[in-house]
Structures are given as structure tokens and as C-alpha cells.
Amino acid sequence: MNAPLSSAPATAPEAWAINVDHVGKTFTLDGGKELKAIDDVDIKIGQGEFVALLGPSGCGKSTILRLVAALEDVSTGRVTVEGSNPTALSRAHRLGVAFQDHALLPWLTIRDNIALPYKVAGRPVDDKRIAELLALVGLSGFEKARPRQLSGGMRQRVSIARALVLKPDVLLLDEPFGALDAVTRRHMNVELQRIWSEQRITTLLVTHSVEEALFLADRVIVMSGRPGRIIKEIQVPFARPRSPDVQRTMEFHHLADELTLALEPEGHH
């Protein structure tokens, strides 16, 4: 049932796992005015690649993720995931997603929340897999707890476990740690890096944190706002698995400075 995690797509017409092909998106506001959220954005993500979309709030980076997740339709251009329409992928239950809001169902236990994708897909629940994932995100023993009994960081770990449970082909992370405090957030980044290095699923991360993007991604794409455009792209050179110490190297600081500078609004200097 599940596609192998990191093999090349044999049948796909193109090699890209995610292809955002010159996409524009315009929203119609309440008063009838039109707002151009993103304009001519072109992003190609390879199999097993981790790409971070970095930008200020309101730059349309979440819109791109929502287009890839088939939550919105493009106005111009085309989005394909694994060579087909994104809707096809979500219908086949091959997308994993975690939002800034954990979106755990409050009436389900932690175990049942992680089992939810099985129920949605109409597949038998694999308790071994759930136990494995709970161990992976460090929450063994919390199976029977309810979301409100957990801390914010723990809830986000549950939502990441839920995103991974069906072994998705593509993982979409929309500011998954955006609502956490700085210390928890750094800790969660280290955890996510470890988890990801074990599974290597094609991942698109949306964030406004320079350090998060650099520490987690293979490639960082910087966007500017209104309308959202790509203004910079850098390859992250650090080998995996990455230890937290990477963040204290000179190279990391240089790259962070470079990205921070790119994020500054023009004419600020």
C-alpha cells in the first residue's frame, strides 16, 4: 500500500517530488477587491529533500504550502506533487501535515489522535506503528492521555507523529513550532532533525525563523511579501545527522546573517 520512502518515482513523468511551476495566487476579498498573495513562484523539490520556505508573516509562504496540500487552487501556473495533482495525493492518503495549531481532536486520546489517519483512510490501525512513533517523539506512556493534559511542545510532537503515521510520501510543516517558546522550540527542532534524519521524507517547511530553517533544511528559500516572491535561495552544507553544535559554528552564523539580511525590508540600510 505505502510507497517506499525514498526511492525514485518510477512512473512519475517528472523527477521532482514537488513542483510549484510559476504559480500565482489571487484572493478576492470581502469588498470585492483582489489581493495578489503570491506571484510567479517557482519551486522544485527533489525526492527526499528538506526545503524550508523562509519569510516574514504575510509573505504568502503558507499559501504555497496550502497549494501543495490541495487546500487552495492556483490562480495561474501549476502545482504537481509526485507527478500528479496534489488532490490525488491527499485522496490516496499519502500526505502528512502538521500546522502551527496542533489540530488534535480534544475528545480523542493521544493514541486515537495518532490513529486518526488510519481511520480516515479506512485502514486497520497498526498499533505497533503507533507505539514506534510515540517512542520516536518521546511520548511512550502517554497513549491514554488527552490533548489538554499535555504541554504545547508535547502536543506538537503528537501532531508530528500523526503526520508520519501513514509513512507519507510528502510531509508538509506549517510553522509547526510557531506557537512554542524559544527554548522548547529549539529543543523541538533538535528532535525533528533526529526524526527526519531517520526517515528522510520529502518535506516542505514553512517558517519565519532563520535558525530553524538553517538547522533543519537542505535548502532554504527566502521570500519577500506583497505579493510573495522568491528573492534568495541557499544550499545548506551541513552533513546529516546534524548535532545541535552545528548552530554554534562560524559557517552557521555566516549563513544566518546572510538570510537575516535578505529578510530585511529593502531600503532599510
Binding site: 491527499s90 490516496a92 501535515v97 489540530a103 481532536l105
Partner: peptide, 25 residues
Amino acid sequence: PPGSSDLFKVFGASRWTRFVHLVLP
């Protein structure tokens, strides 16, 4: 619950699954 509607869409839930597992509860 916030975000749950998007979540069910991304997971490719059918109208019926969405109703039973999300809307009714």
C-alpha cells in the same frame, strides 16, 4: 476544532469519514 477541517482535507477524508470522525463529535 481549529485547524481540524484542513487536516481532514489533507488526509483525504471522504465526506462520510469527516462527518463521523469530526463533525458529529
